[in-house]
């Protein structure tokens, strides 16, 4: 069995009127099949209302499936006895940085999770020190969270989850309320944890730029997984992505349009570096190295 495995997962939001009769049923997840290996960096993409947040909340048992099954680290989310174990295994970071910080001092907030699961005092301090170091927030440990920037608050939130020593972190649109600088800051902190500590990352977002470095990408639309593959495979299908109302990274889009205009470069270009190299190569082929001028500058 895979680290995380979803089989025909269905979730319906049922609205009832005052007498308890069903008013409307909205299917947020529709027969989702999905597998995630331990240690992977997986991105889940989708525009608003695609069901990606609903899926994320299942991984932490904040929501339970209407039908189908989901296993996290071999534990069935339908099993009520495993609830706290699953939440310990899979930590979650939310969108709004203000609404997930509990304490008025950074280090106390990081200690909140370990306190809840009954870690002895001395070990709480060790874990808090370590987690703050991991996200690079040690110098702010005795500050009030209110004085931090959005990116810093999200890093504190990540540290708070890390202090519970989870094997997997689910980040539910962690950058949606941040500026570009904060977005980069949070993404880098999370990737470092993935690479250095081997923590599985499940990164839920609608910013395409952020998934470039993911190992695998799932694209969701109206409750189902519609595309899956490596970022390169996904981004080579520019027209399909547009159909699902997703914006392709600028470089990929530029490369796509150049390709359509007849420039000889491969599909699925992700970064500026790659585009520069591809253009140089195609320039070399065409004109013997004349095509380099002006490319590679912002």
């Amino acid at each position: 069995m895979k680290f995380i495995e979803a089989r025909k997962l269905v979730h319906e939001y049922i609205r009832r009127d005052e007498e308890g009769n069903v008013e409307s049923i909205q299917t947020a997840l529709d027969q989702v099949d999905l597998e995630i290996e331990e240690g992977e960096f997986v991105a889940v993409l989708g525009h608003n209302g695609s069901g990606k947040s609903t899926f994320a909340k299942h991984l932490n048992v904040l929501l339970s499936p209407t039908e189908g099954s989901l296993w996290v680290d071999g534990k069935d989310v339908n099993d009520a006895d495993k609830l706290w174990e699953i939440r310990k295994t899979a930590g979650m970071v939310f969108q709004n940085p203000d609404n997930q910080i509990v304490a008025s001092v950074v280090e106390e907030d990081v200690g909140f999770g370990p306190e809840n699961i009954g870690v002895p005092t001395r070990e709480i301090w060790e874990r808090v020190d370590q987690s703050l170091r991991d996200v690079g927030m040690t110098e702010y440990r005795s500050h009030s969270p209110n004085k931090l920037s959005g990116g810093q608050k999200q890093r504190v939130a990540i540290a708070g989850v890390m202090a519970m020593e989870p094997r997997c972190i689910i980040l539910d649109e962690p950058t949606a309320m941040l500026d570009p600088h904060g977005r980069r800051e949070v993404l880098e902190a999370a990737r470092r944890l993935n690479q250095e500590k081997g923590v599985t990352l499940i990164w839920i977002t609608h910013y395409m730029e952020e998934v470039v470095h993911a190992d695998r990408v799932y694209v969701m639309d109206s409750g189902s997984v519609v595309l899956k593959g490596t970022p390169r495979e996904i981004f080579s299908q520019v027209d399909t992505l547009k159909k699902y109302r997703l914006d392709v990274p600028q470089m990929t889009l530029l490369a796509h349009e150049l390709r359509q205009a007849g420039v000889g470069i491969p599909a699925g270009i992700l970064t500026r570096q790659e585009l520069v190299e591809a253009l140089c190569r195609s320039g070399l082929e065409e004109r013997g190295g004349g095509g380099y001028a002006g490319v590679g500058r912002e």
């Binding site: 932490n60 904040l62 706290w84 939440r87 310990k88 930590g91 979650m92 939310f94 709004n96 609404n99 997930q100 509990v102 909140f112 999770g113 809840n116 699961i117 708070g160 989850v161 519970m164």
Partner: peptide, 11 residues
Amino acid sequence: DLALAMEARCY
């Protein structure tokens, strides 16, 4: 939101 976040952290 805060209640969800606290629950997610095993409170």
